[in-house]
Amino acid sequence: MFFVISGFVIARVALQQDCRTFVFLRISRIYPIYWFYLGLTVGFFKFWQSHTFSTAELLPAILLVPSSSAPIVPVAWSLIYEVYFYAVVSLFIAARIELRSAYLAWAIITATIWIFDSSAFLGSVNTLEFIAGGLLSFFAGGWTDSKLLKLNCPRWIEALGDASYSIYLCHFLLIATLGRLLFSAGLTGWIITAVLSLVMANFAGLASYHWLEKPILRFARIVRNRWA
């Protein structure tokens, strides 16, 4: 569902932006705060496990490209797909290809690769979900917009939604650190660990959003306006 929603949103955005703007906004949205948490994660492994990552592990992690090793930041696996999606869509925009036709062709190519090798990165079901979200946006965007406008979410849900990327990035580190601290204090019950992890991950994500992510995005808008 995550990739379907992402595909829906990106398809709408792609119709409204030129290639340079699209690429700049996607890079500034994904990478800076991710690099911050990547650095914290590298430090976490160094401090708690005396583990140092090799250049072969760090470079793909920094660039968010596929690698034979597991991502250093566990949730980065989904970001690797997102970066791939953005790269393909940016090529469509740059080439001025009609997006609905491009998405349909992309779906056929991806499905064909999946049929012959379901483990291939380029033939992933995740990509098909992203494409499905985009096609939904193209063919039923007006209808879905009218339904979404009728939704009235409580303010706290909107706040968590705004901070969702920060929460997504920080929760692994927070839960891992909290688990170690609770274990050291002799508090090993899963209920207290789960409750504290849930509460603290959301609060940490909200703090990260307001004090780190928003300033980064604000600065990116300034740079973009001067660049335009």
Rank of each mutant, 00 (worst) to 15 (best):
residue 118 S to V: 09
residue 119 S to L: 11
residue 121 F to A: 10
residue 126 N to C: 06
residue 127 T to C: 09
residue 127 T to E: 02
residue 128 L to R: 02
residue 129 E to A: 12
residue 129 E to W: 13
residue 129 E to P: 00
residue 132 A to D: 01
residue 133 G to K: 03
residue 134 G to P: 00
residue 134 G to N: 07
residue 135 L to H: 05
residue 137 S to Y: 13
residue 139 F to P: 01
residue 140 A to Y: 01
residue 141 G to T: 02
residue 141 G to V: 03
residue 143 W to C: 02
residue 146 S to I: 01
residue 147 K to F: 06
residue 148 L to I: 15
residue 151 L to W: 06
residue 154 P to M: 06
residue 154 P to Y: 09
residue 154 P to E: 02
residue 154 P to S: 04
residue 158 E to F: 08
residue 160 L to Y: 13
residue 161 G to T: 04
residue 162 D to A: 05
residue 163 A to Y: 02
residue 165 Y to A: 13
residue 168 Y to V: 12
residue 168 Y to M: 14
residue 171 H to G: 11
residue 171 H to M: 13
residue 172 F to Q: 13
residue 173 L to N: 06
residue 176 A to Q: 06
residue 177 T to A: 15
residue 178 L to C: 04
residue 179 G to T: 09
residue 179 G to N: 15
residue 180 R to W: 11
residue 180 R to E: 05
residue 181 L to P: 03
residue 182 L to W: 01
residue 185 A to E: 12
residue 186 G to D: 08
residue 187 L to W: 15
residue 187 L to S: 06
residue 187 L to R: 14
residue 189 G to K: 08
residue 193 T to S: 09
residue 194 A to W: 12
residue 195 V to E: 07
residue 195 V to G: 00
residue 196 L to N: 08
residue 196 L to V: 05
residue 198 L to F: 05
residue 200 M to F: 06
residue 200 M to I: 10
residue 202 N to Q: 13
